[in-house]
Design a protein around this nucleic acid. Sequence first.
DNA 1: TATGAATGAGCCTTCATTCAT
DNA 2: AATGAATGAAGGCTCATTCAT
Lengths: 190, 190, 190, 190
Amino acid sequence: MRVKDEEKVNRIYRAAMKVVNSDGFQGSSMSKIAKEADVSAATIYLYFENKDDMIKKLFIHLKSGMGNSYFKDTNDLTPSKGTFRTIWLNHYQYIMDNMEEYNFLENFSNCPLIERIEKEYKPDYCPVIESLFEKSKSQGLLLNLNNDLLYSLLFLPVNYLVKKSKSNGTTLGTNELIEVFEASWRAICK
Amino acid sequence: MRVKDEEKVNRIYRAAMKVVNSDGFQGSSMSKIAKEADVSAATIYLYFENKDDMIKKLFIHLKSGMGNSYFKDTNDLTPSKGTFRTIWLNHYQYIMDNMEEYNFLENFSNCPLIERIEKEYKPDYCPVIESLFEKSKSQGLLLNLNNDLLYSLLFLPVNYLVKKSKSNGTTLGTNELIEVFEASWRAICK
Amino acid sequence: MRVKDEEKVNRIYRAAMKVVNSDGFQGSSMSKIAKEADVSAATIYLYFENKDDMIKKLFIHLKSGMGNSYFKDTNDLTPSKGTFRTIWLNHYQYIMDNMEEYNFLENFSNCPLIERIEKEYKPDYCPVIESLFEKSKSQGLLLNLNNDLLYSLLFLPVNYLVKKSKSNGTTLGTNELIEVFEASWRAICK
Amino acid sequence: MRVKDEEKVNRIYRAAMKVVNSDGFQGSSMSKIAKEADVSAATIYLYFENKDDMIKKLFIHLKSGMGNSYFKDTNDLTPSKGTFRTIWLNHYQYIMDNMEEYNFLENFSNCPLIERIEKEYKPDYCPVIESLFEKSKSQGLLLNLNNDLLYSLLFLPVNYLVKKSKSNGTTLGTNELIEVFEASWRAICK
DNA sequence: TATGAATGAGCCTTCATTCAT
DNA sequence: AATGAATGAAGGCTCATTCAT
């Protein structure tokens, strides 16, 4: 397994994501993915050890891509409501712009295969936001709650809503969006 | 004529849940489930049309069981913070007491097979809580937000925390629990 | 296997014939037959050893019924063209009136299961016609050909035509019918 | 890349024919056929869509092979008794030389699966002989009968006899053979 | 007698993976 | 490096048959 053609790996990633999202994990097969990527199934095995390996690497690939984009345009991490709002909106924007990726990640967070790597991978997943939480708590901006709890109060509702609105075919207006942020913020601010 | 073993369908349900939870959907097979339930694979087809049918019925079975238990001991649905706390704590208790069931439901909410029946089934899933939301909004107890949003602000964080704590092996103390409720409540109350 | 209810056996026979004719041998199952006969599948095993046994007995049952009816209204077996015409027309009429039975027999004459019993059963299948052939040959009415050959020259064409016309949805007119007989007769008469 | 073994499909054909002939349609399974062909069952699916597809293609393959061989060495289709005799003897020879193929075709002409393709395939099956019939009728060589009828009067008896003689272990002598032809011919000639 | 329940065996088919070019 | 061919293993499902009432 020697990586020569970096672009081919991406084609495989994209194909896998697409097939899995549309057919579900159990409906996805190496040959479908291969066809979608326009390579032979055997070729995939030049780049990945096996199917699990491919899925895991795809998961990590997408997850880190997602983590990075939260903080695009955001070098100023001074604890403030404005900072959180910016991050929060970036998060929202990322989900909207990368629905495919987001869906894939959501779908697989709960599968046994992924759970293991989630555990290994999570620690260094979002150190930036973790430290922002810590700073904010020590400055009295946020309630003194566990980071996981802060995370869930702040981000889960919007995640859920996006998924909902996607399946309903509706879109969230700007006002509505701000409303959601304000509600979430109220939950965690001091 | 051998008499139909009413309990057998439950054995199958339990087995399916167990196998799926430990091996994931893609790793679950009818024969594994059959072996776990201590019946022949063919027997499952006496009770269900096919695998999909079985999973769907199991899903509905668990979901309605879950819905019912939220309101055990709660006939008084007068809109008040106390009512919501009771329901919220029932919800928490249910998850803790029925981790297997809860996990199964979580795992499958995202699979394509289930998405369809979710849509059909959701409308009348929790009419009680929906009407409580409505009443509360009209009485000025809650912010005038979409029910889905209220739901996600109120329940998702605790869901997430339970899963977290399970995978960490820790348990939430009573105080911590109340803290989570209070935070969630702050997000939605007027 | 004790036969108590003679009528039930017939219901099973009729059901088997119907199912096999419409779904083919490979598409016929004991449960389908049972349902068609309005009995439990287990009940069939009270009357027959197993599926093969049932099919074989049905085959023999039908075959002997068919043999008998060739000579209804025909006790006069004096060798003559008229006698043969009568038999030939009886044969035609029987096929038309008992298409289901005839089809079943045709379908199964070639299957390995039946071939064995055909051999055992054939000898005494149609002694009447065999002796008529013999007498006719010795009287110089027919060519001195093997009985099987006489049989095939006389009867196979009309069999084939009936099947054809059935699948075309057409019916043979009386004149046409006589024409066929005359042609067949020309083949074997001296 | 391993090269596709053109001969492999023939091995599969031969195996299918053999298994079906000895075990009947209902007794034939893909795995039996695969074993007989000395390939993996999965391999068959590289060459055929599914079992039905394989059987159908085998049927057509054999049928057209049979059709072709009737007219080997026979380009002269001038209507005459000699022409018919030649064709008739070719037909006989084909059956004797290709008993397996012939049996398979016979066995399957009556199964529902085949009936459909027979209907689609028959029209252009033997246009040569059809046109010979037509020409012969218009020249007054043959009786003015339906082609199907001519076909059945001419060929069915010999078919039957061959099968008979095979199951008896006897062989038709040349004289006997000519006798059969003459009888058949007498049925249809003017 | 009659039958619904139950099942082991087997069937068709697919799939992840390896082979050979 | 790339791929079509090949396959063992497994999956979902059906069926003839037996069991237990």
